[in-house]
């Protein structure tokens, strides 16, 4: 009802969506707490006692927020995000998510190098011979600092294994 393709997403819709999301989370918390006992025993509260009421409060707060969304934001022309901005945010968010996915597969070093090179290349509009070494450089600095300096391993994938680095 409030999806307006010309102007983007209305604040009302997002308010509702977020409140529904938090409400759902609250319900899940209640459900999970009942599983482990949400009563008050003679030795004080059970493991699920506090979480259960916390869940209830989340549900309650979310319901009020839904009502307030209807009162405050319905019918107003307030826009959460217009199409142009959505595109800009997506252009940051999507590579970031891809970075996460690639890292889970190829490891963080490869992911970092690719991500930084790609964003510099496509968003920063740098030349490839600047972007590529920059990506590799950052990755290398990470390697030296974490792996060698602090001996904290970062996630590695098949590419490192290829070079005999585990």
């Amino acid at each position: 009802m409030s999806e307006n393709s010309a102007n983007g997403v209305s604040r009302f819709a997002v308010e509702l969506g977020v409140a529904a999301l938090t409400g759902g989370f609250g319900a899940a918390v209640c459900y999970g707490s009942l599983d482990i006992g949400a009563g008050w025993t003679e030795m004080g509260p059970d493991a699920g006692y506090f979480p259960f009421y916390i869940g209830l409060l989340i549900v309650f707060g979310s319901l009020v927020n839904i009502v307030q969304a209807f009162l405050k934001h319905r019918g107003t022309e307030e826009i959460f995000m217009d199409a142009g901005r959505a595109k800009v945010v997506a252009s940051f968010l999507l590579p970031l998510t891809a970075f996460g996915a690639v890292s889970a597969w190829l490891g963080l070093y490869v992911g970092t190098a690719l991500y930084i090179a790609a964003t510099m290349l496509f968003q920063g509009r740098y030349k490839w011979w600047i972007a590529l070494p920059a990506g590799l450089g950052v990755s290398l600095v990470f390697f030296v600092v974490f792996e060698i300096g602090f001996q904290v391993p970062l996630l590695k994938g098949p590419v490192e294994a290829w070079f005999g680095i585990y």
Binding site: T22, G26, P51, G55, L57, I58, G61
Partner: peptide, 11 residues
Amino acid sequence: KTLVSMMLGFA
């Protein structure tokens, strides 16, 4: 909103 935010933290 403060309530929801805080309770999310507790949960």
